[in-house]
Design a protein around this nucleic acid. Structure first.
Lengths: 154, 154
DNA sequence: TAGCACATTATAATCATTATAATTTAAACG
DNA sequence: CGTTTAAATTATAATGATTATAATGTGCTA
């Protein structure tokens, strides 16, 4: 886990930025919540637990910086807020999302799945793909279960 | 073209809404700019040419209404604004987009392309898909051409 | 024509995000 | 060690998109 931060530190240095305490605290929060899709405000509140003096603007700037360096991804699910997500290490492409229309849960798909589709697009539209975003909207397995049987105890 | 508006009128009536002059003007603007991806503000300014007394709030409400009825789609390319796009008639699914990182152009893909992928997702993640969003980021054919040869006359 | 529901307008309010200006930190140098 | 200088941070104000509010208008139905 430490090594993960060290590698991020190197990435920052490679672009001649420093890993300041505030930036480190922000990264730590992201590492501790890899599953979630935190908004800038969420991150801010969580970072305050570690570094209470931090300002909201700094969190925004840090997230912007990390986005630029492709350490995190900025996503937008259509509600008014941007969400931030740590990239899988070594992932060339953005992972996909399943957004449940019922309960609002957001699950992730790490598999690529789009290789074939990308081939078609590159050829047919003569478009050189750098990245992609794919989101499915529908009903997640949890809500399925809930409606088919009477909520079994967890 | 007239028939297109008539059909939209029927869709509204079916949901017990009326096609008021303001709503008609808004729809007309969307029809006249099917290629573009207009923001609410863009639509507002264009509608003012036809119906100068219209208010911004009405445009927002109309676009929201049309989105609800699946007549238009609300998209978000990550810049701060929502954009609105008339659905292809009879399209069950949302069309895809190619966003050029160089010139910012947004092209559309009407083909589905995702049938196979959706089958996999529904089965493997037990997720009942209702809709999807797919956007590719990369370099469009125009920018390709521009950089490989010296801009030929249009 | 009176009553009533729906639409619309102008304006204000809200919320996320970004810019500003003053202050702090810290690396670099002598 | 002090000094200098650039980058980073902070608190706050400003901006810009969107939504809510309250007052007014429109047009059917009886």
């Amino acid at each position: 886990m430490e090594t993960r931060i060290d590698r991020i530190k190197k990435q920052l240095h490679a672009a001649s930025y420093k890993l300041t305490p505030q930036r480190e605290a922000t990264v730590r929060v992201l590492l501790d919540h890899e599953e979630d899709h935190l908004s800038a405000e969420d991150v801010y509140l969580l970072v305050k637990d570690i570094a209470p003096e931090i300002g909201l603007a700094t969190v925004y700037r840090t997230l912007e910086l990390l986005t630029e360096l492709k350490i995190v991804d900025k996503i937008n699910f259509g509600d008014g807020v941007s969400r931030f997500d740590l990239r899988q290490e070594g992932a060339a492409h953005f992972h996909h999302h399943l957004v449940c229309l019922e309960c609002g849960a957001v699950d992730e798909i790490q598999e690529d799945l789009l290789e074939d589709v990308e081939g078609v697009v590159e050829k047919r539209w003569n478009f050189q793909i750098k990245d992609h975003r794919l989101t499915f909207h529908g009903i997640c397995w949890r809500c399925h279960d809930r409606s088919s049987q009477d909520s079994p105890e967890k």
